[in-house]
Simulated scan of single mutants.
Amino acid sequence: MELGKMDTSRRNEPTYLVWSIFNTFCCCWPLGIAAIICSCRVNNANSLGDAGKAQESSRIAKNLNIASLVFGLIGLIMVIVVVVIQNSNM
């Protein structure tokens, strides 16, 4: 390999680790923990050069993060609705 040129033949899949941590603390912690585990699997597979496992784990981590965010938003909306209903009955 020539000096100054990077090896772009190996593609690293995104880990979504930061998103997973955010979802664990702010949205839905059970799905967030599962997403963190899958994100770590992506990182390990990227390190080992296992593109198939990295791609599959990355897809699962992304889907878990989307589900966690949706459940968190639904929960937040439900809490707001309950608070508004309780305050309107006073």
Rank of each mutant, 00 (worst) to 15 (best):
L3T: 15
G4L: 05
K5L: 09
M6Y: 08
D7H: 05
D7V: 01
T8D: 14
S9T: 14
R11H: 15
N12V: 05
P14H: 02
T15M: 03
Y16N: 03
Y16F: 07
V18H: 10
W19F: 11
S20V: 00
S20I: 00
I21L: 10
F22N: 14
F22I: 14
N23W: 02
N23H: 04
T24N: 08
G32T: 02
I33R: 04
A35Q: 03
A35M: 02
I36L: 05
C38V: 04
C38D: 10
C38M: 15
S39F: 00
S39E: 02
C40R: 08
C40V: 15
R41Q: 11
V42N: 01
N43S: 09
N43V: 08
D50M: 06
D50W: 01
A51F: 07
A51C: 06
A51H: 11
G52C: 05
G52M: 07
G52R: 10
K53M: 11
K53A: 15
A54Y: 01
S57C: 08
S58N: 03
R59Q: 12
R59M: 12
R59L: 12
A61I: 02
A61H: 00
A61R: 01
K62R: 11
N63R: 12
N63M: 10
L64R: 04
L64H: 01
N65M: 03
A67V: 07
A67Y: 06
A67G: 09
S68Q: 03
F71L: 15
F71C: 09
F71S: 10
G72C: 00
G72I: 02
L73S: 10
G75Q: 00
L76M: 15
L76N: 09
L76F: 14
I77N: 09
V79L: 13
I80V: 13
V81L: 08
V81Q: 06
V81C: 11
V84T: 08
Q86T: 07
Q86A: 11
N87W: 03
N89R: 13
N89D: 13
M90K: 14
M90F: 09
